[in-house]
Structure formats: C-alpha cells, structure tokens
Design a protein around this nucleic acid. Structure first.
Lengths: 334, 334
DNA sequence: TTGTATGCGTTATCAA
DNA sequence: TTGATAACGCATACAA
C-alpha cells in the first residue's frame, strides 16, 4: 500500500510519535532528528493519510455542496466564491450537481452525511420540510436562496424583491406602462419573490396591472425563447419586459432575433442576476446584479462559524443593484 | 458527538459486530434481531462515520478534480459528465476550481493526496513535468486535454486538429480564401492543436497563408472582443475567422456589434466547443462540437478502471463534429 | 527530547 | 447466530 508514518519512523530510526511531531507543529524536537525525519519522509514520498487524520481529529475539513441542475453561469459564479473561501479556510468541497428530483437529492445528502463537517444546499424549492428529518441534530447547514421562515437552519438569499422592484421601476422611468413579467415558476423561491417585487412596482407606479402580462417560465433560456411568441401575441402588446433571470432574458433576445425584432426598440428588456454573458450579448443586457460570488463566500463563512460553534443559525440577505446597459434603452455605463 | 455504532448496539442490546452485520451485507442475522437493530439505528438517527469506514476499507470512494479558472460553460458541461458518472459508480467528487498558478495547483494537489482514490486534472498547460514528482507512484491519474506524449498518466483529449481542420475547410467551402485564426495562446495544449489544424487546412486548400492572419488570444470572451479591432485593421481584411473556442467567438460577435458590423456578412465566423450559449446568440454560432460531457464521463470511467486495477494508462481521443448554424453563412440546421 | 500506548469508528476474523 | 477483538494510520497523554 501507501507509505505510512511507520515506514518513515523506521527509515529515520525514530518512533512514530516523533515523526508525527515533526510533521505537525514540530513540537520540541531536536533539530538534528527533525532533519532526519524530514529527509526520510521526502525520500519515501510520504503523504499523511488524511482519512486517519480525520478520524483521529473528529473532523473532515470537508464541506458538502449540493447544487441543482440548472443555469450554468449562475452556479459557476457561486461555486467560485465557495471554492475560493473554502481554500482560504483550509477546507475542501465535496460537490454534487445535476439533480432535479427531491429523492435524488435525498440520497445524495444521505451519502454525504457521515463524511462532511457541514452542508451547503442551494435548494430553491419552497418546501424543504424533509430536511428536518434527514439532517442529524448537530450538523451545520446553510440554505441558499430559500425561504427563511420555514427553517431552523442558517439561510442566505438575495434581496429578490428589491431587485425586481428596481428593475420594473427603471422600465417605468423609460416611460413604459405596459410591462410584462416572465417569471421563474411558482415552485421556486427566488422566482416568487421577484414576481412579488414586480407586482409591487406595478402597483406603486400605476402601471398596467393585467394578469395576462405575467408569463410563467422556468429560468431556462428555452423558456425565454418560447415566451417571445406569447408576448408578441398579446393585445395590446407590452412595450417592456422584466425577465426574472438572465438566462431567460438571453432566450428572449434570441427569440426576438428570430422574429426579426430587437431590444430595446421593439421590446425593452431587463434581466436579473448579471451573469458574465449579460455583458457580451448584443444588445448588452440591463439587469439586476446579484452578488453570486459573494453568496458563495458568505455561505462558507457562515457555515464554518457554525462548525466552530461560535455562531448560531441566522438569516442574511444580500443586496442587489441595477446595472444599466443597452437592452432597456439606456446608453450603457462606461 | 455524533452517534456511533456502539450507541446503536447498546440500544438494541447486541454487540457492535451484529449491528455492523445488519447495516451492511446483513449476513446471517436472525430476522428478529435485525429488526431490533434497524429500529434502534433509526430512532437514534444513526449514520455511519464514513471516515472510519474509509480508514478500515483503505479507500475513500472520493475522486479529486482540479479545474482551472476559465470559460464557465465549458467546465459546467465537463463537470456534469463527471458528476453524473461518479454518482452512478457510488463515488464522490472533491472539486477545486479557480486557480491559475502552477504553485497554487501544486498545493491543492498536495492537500488532496491523502484523501482521494484518484485524481482527474484538467490542466491544459503543455508542461506538467512537475506532476511526476508530485504524485505518488500508485495513485491513478487522468489528465484531460493535455499532451499525451509527456506523460506516464492516462490522458483524454478532443480531436482538436481534426475539428479545427473541418472548421476552416467549411469556411473555404463558403468561398473564403483569406481566413484568419484567433488562437488560444501558445501555452495551451488545445490551442496549439487547433492552430495546427487551421494551418493544415490553409495549406491543403490553397488558402492565403499569412502570419498576420494568426492572432493570439487566450480563450476568454474579452480576447475575442479585443481581437475585432485588430482584425478590421488588417489589409486586406480577412473575410472569415476561425475562433479557436466559443468564448472568444462570442466576444468577437460582441466586438462586431460595437463596430456596427455583423456576422456572417461582414465576417464569417466559426467557433470551437459548442457550448450551450452558441445556440442562443444572434446570429447563432457555427462551431465544432466537442463532447464536453462525454469527456467528463470517460474520465470517470477510465479513472475507476485504473483504481480497480483492471486497466493501465492509455491515451484516448474524442471525436468532434462541425455544427452548422448562422455565423458561417449557412442556413441553420433544423 | 523521545518512546509507549491508547483511542478515534468501523469491519472482519475467529471463537463461542 | 452472536460476541470479543484486532487492525486501519494517526495524534496525543503520559512515562521515561
């Protein structure tokens, strides 16, 4: 098998305890023996067995991360934040993406349970009552973009309501009165909040409030593309659209192109998330910036605080801000 | 702390050995005691400590995955394949993204060494001699999109040369003779091969061979955008461009838009990778499909074959194929 | 300064 | 069918 601390000890002609001391805090060890040990370890290509270490230390320094199977760029950003912070804190990420089903997620969580110090779940479905039974009492959990009220766990979410409100308000400032909303479905937490923000802005600014202006999507590009036809068939036709995420907004742009139309002239458009691609499409996408990387960073910070026991679960919200580009009718920011 | 097998044993009034038997293969255990044990485990919310299991079993069922900090959608696809196959085989992914520096990667690999059964590295730099010293003798490693010749490890790569060749050939079929190439840099394995494919096609089809037509990029969108100006200033101006990945091609599309131009009329364009977004930009991107998800799947399969010892390192190539859409001047496929 | 011995939670071997 | 126990590799309390 692999070389063990015993092999190193034999080679250096000392005890395993001494080797261990050298390799770790290098306690009180004679300089001479220290060198011998280091050399022995090096020459044997020794690497400590982390599994044994973990067992001994009663911690794995691993964090389980569950992400749903969706909108690539969004998760890439979140993951970047998670990854970076985790490394800073000397922890590893045990990642599992690409599952949509609840039972699938359950089995993944099960298989993670005995091997991580904590869990970070991006689980935008409203209901996660099942988590209560699934997760053992003491295990720290951070829930991302989900409903705070249902949960005894730490949560972290964007300020979806404010962001959506600002988006619609901005379209109103451009003079639009008949503004449609492409929502992300009824099951999704972010989607619900954004829809609520849209409705609030419509009400506050005396815009046309008409249920047929609310089109249901599912946060995928294809939903955006498909929505265009429905949008164009509305009478009277809306002059602006709030797409409740950027993936759908990109799909809308594509759909418009296929119909021989263009934003913002034929339809003013604002998205949500500010994924990197929003900057690169033509026309560039005005959108609500959601601090995705920061979400990942905070998640790690909160989780490790829970792990170390110097915090208890709380509920945090991350602010969003509107980024003006071309698709709404603005001249883009420099 | 967490409940252990001993707690369950106490509760069920049996020995730990019996509990273990029940929880695993349920060897020869009396039906009656089996039920008692299962019930005890359930009521205590017991989950086996995977760390202890791993130590005992001398395997972790975890795979270390290292990805560089680049082009999001590409890696999302690869990761999807990795993730899916790993789960099918009952393994977990210990993922680390977002590092560009070699020493950074080294330290991550170091920290992974004692805790995984194998390593999958997406490390497109040509030189990875340092891996030889870093990785212990017996540890299985799969190298993605890298030079096979330098390595004693298993490798897996796209057929970059053929793909690029086909892309340029297709532009030639559209009647273009002065075809530029936006490369991915000199350090990158994929980039080199794609550039070579471009050159071969130029030579074989008697196209204009001019070093000034080869522009160096770095696989980022921004490089694509920046390249447009240089492209437009060439005299005579090229009528077509092979961008050696889709991210750059998307940047080119953006750059053209800013210059008030459009593909394919002002510049015919073919990319490489076929990331999902290629389908959704306007005009949609003709590109070489690289089976990214399959790359991930194969990587897991190869690695686990190595782990189980019923294979030895080999070198595989995955075929690519041209996908005709709008940016080259074709009518898009249905 | 160094060595011996114990335990972390499991599984498997051997006896009973 | 079940139980006692050794071993996996490491870190530490205690002894020397």
């Amino acid at each position: 098998m692999s070389t063990t601390i015993q092999d190193v000890a034999d080679r250096a002609d000392v005890s395993v305890a001494t080797v261990s001391r050298v390799l770790n805090g290098s306690d009180r060890v004679r300089e001479n023996t220290k060198e011998t040990v280091v050399e022995a370890a090096r020459s044997l290509g020794y690497h400590p067995n982390e599994t044994a270490r973990n067992l001994r230390a009663q911690e794995t320094r691993m964090i389980g991360v569950l992400l749903p199977n969706m909108h690539g760029e969004f998760f890439a950003q979140v993951t970047r934040g998670l990854d970076q912070r985790a490394r800073e804190y000397g922890h590893h990420l045990l990642v599992s993406n690409s599952h949509t089903q609840e039972d699938e997620a359950k089995s993944v969580i099960q298989s993670l349970l005995g091997r991580v110090d904590g869990l970070i779940l991006l689980w935008p479905r409203l209901s996660h009552d099942f988590l209560g039974d699934l997760v053992p009492e003491g295990l720290p959990v951070v829930l991302l973009n989900t409903d705070r009220s249902t949960s005894r766990f730490q949560t972290l979410a964007f300020d979806n309501h404010d962001g959506a409100y600002a988006a619609v308000e901005h379209l109103a400032e451009h003079g639009h009165e008949r503004i449609a909303c492409l929502s992300g479905g009824t099951q999704n937490f972010d989607a619900q909040k954004r829809l609520a923000g849209y409705r609030a802005a419509v009400a506050d600014h005396d815009l046309i409030a008409d249920p047929s202006l609310e089109i249901e999507g599912d946060f995928t590009r294809e939903a955006g593309r498909a929505a265009v036809e429905r949008l164009l068939n509305l009478t009277p036709r809306p002059t602006a659209l709030f797409a409740s995420n950027d993936s759908m907004a990109l799909g809308v742009l594509r759909g418009l192109h296929e119909a021989g139309l263009e934003a913002p002239d034929d339809l003013a458009l604002v998205g949500f998330d500010d994924i990197p691609m929003a900057h690169y499409v033509a026309p560039s996408l005005t959108t609500v910036h959601a601090p995705m990387k920061e979400l990942g960073e905070r998640a790690i910070e909160r989780l490790l605080a829970l792990v170390q026991g110097d915090a208890s679960p709380s509920h945090h919200t991350l602010q969003t801000r509107l980024v003006r580009r071309e698709s709404c009718g603005c001249t883009p920011e420099p």
